[in-house]
């Protein structure tokens, strides 16, 4: 084994942290969504690393499902963003309390 698993898991933890921070601090919805994708990627990395460590492919299957779900999530999420911004153009911008929570 060339690469210590803990390095990979550390990488995943760092990426996850970056993703969480991004989702927390950024205002831009698209970037928030991308940060969430980054979180999911970190999860995938962790799964892959652990699958390597345990020598079982359950982790890989999990990753495949996660990837699928991520794709579905993004499709819906961007759909929501589109419908929101379509509406925003036709209504009063001041009404948008967008992401001010």
């Amino acid at each position: 084994m060339e690469i210590p698993i803990e390095l990979v898991v550390s990488l995943s933890a760092i990426l996850f942290g970056i993703g969480v921070v991004g989702a927390l601090v950024r205002r831009n919805i698209i970037v928030i969504l991308m940060s969430i994708e980054l979180m999911l990627n970190a999860v995938n990395l962790a799964f892959v690393a652990f699958a390597r460590m345990h020598g079982t492919n359950d982790g890989h299957v999990f990753v495949l499902i996660v990837i699928t779900v991520a794709a579905a999530e993004v499709a819906v999420g961007l759909g929501i963003v589109i419908s929101l911004f379509r509406n925003r153009d036709t209504t009063n911008v001041d009404d948008v309390s967008l992401l001010k929570w």
Partner: peptide
């Protein structure tokens, strides 16, 4: 990021992933 992660996956023997 995604592509580099893919490279890491290859290093982890997760080719399909």
């Amino acid at each position: 990021t995604m592509v580099s992660l893919a490279a890491v996956y290859v290093l982890m023997e997760a080719h399909l992933v």
